[in-house]
Design a protein around this nucleic acid. Structure first.
Lengths: 124, 124
DNA sequence: ACAGCATAGCTTGCGTAGCATGGTATACTT
DNA sequence: AAGTATACCATGCTACGCAAGCTATGCTGT
């Protein structure tokens, strides 16, 4: 049973929400985000993340700086929420709750017994 | 704050799950599905639903028949799960729970305080 | 010395699905 | 006759996930 392409579709949009949510906690760089959002059951691969970060920066939702952390060997690009991003994430989180509640309800109701059969003759 | 195109992205894949879940209860026709899945906070418009039903039928996940119900004025096309669709929906529902739990966790953890600031000098 | 691997970030091209818009056809209402 | 409701379908646009592949640095083992 192949559900992999369907899962890709399901992830659309969720990546943006998860990344912005992670950055709400504070500054992070690419691979750091990937480890926190792309693990088992995760929603991100690196080919998805970097274009996404670039886009969010271009759209003004994120700001970025290159920095050399004390324990790092090579420079990292650190991203943080802009004022606009900060304003957006609250609304997105509210919409996510609404959306996931709706889908979960639809999924769960389908467990409760059969509907009565539809009357009517099939047309051939 | 425009989140409408983001919401479209979020809906991708969810429509298929919701439709198959509704059909797990029993036979339904197009507008019937639309009323149960497309309302407020819903995930479907009719320009999405009909191509989706056609695709699912073509892929063998659904079977359909035209029928004249007693209370209807014009014929309706009734869809039901095929054996393959029945086998698939269980797996999809399991994956949905996993996925939505992951995203919800990411969203909710972002409420718990600030991370410690990253040490390191910005490179200019 | 140098091959291999880990860390870190980025680019290209493909495929898929949501959806706005518009269309067909029938039946009922005014 | 015109308008509205029911019911289904087709076209074209767009966005985004992701596989695959690229660059560059620094550490480690032989």
């Amino acid at each position: 049973m192949d559900t992999s392409s369907w899962q890709s579709q399901l992830r659309k949009g969720a990546a943006e929400l998860v990344v912005l949510s992670l950055l709400k906690e504070g500054e992070r760089y690419g691979l750091d985000i990937l480890e926190n959002a792309g693990g088992s059951g995760g929603v991100l691969s690196d080919g998805t993340l970097y274009p996404l970060l670039t886009r969010l920066e271009r759209e003004g939702k994120l700001e970025a700086r290159w920095a050399m952390a004390d324990d790092a060997k090579i420079p990292r690009k650190y991203y943080r929420l802009s004022d606009e991003g900060e304003a957006l994430i609250g609304e997105m989180q509210r919409l996510w709750h609404e959306f996931s509640a709706f889908v979960s309800r639809a999924v769960e109701e389908s467990g409760n017994g059969k509907r009565t059969a539809v009357r009517g003759r099939t047309i051939s």
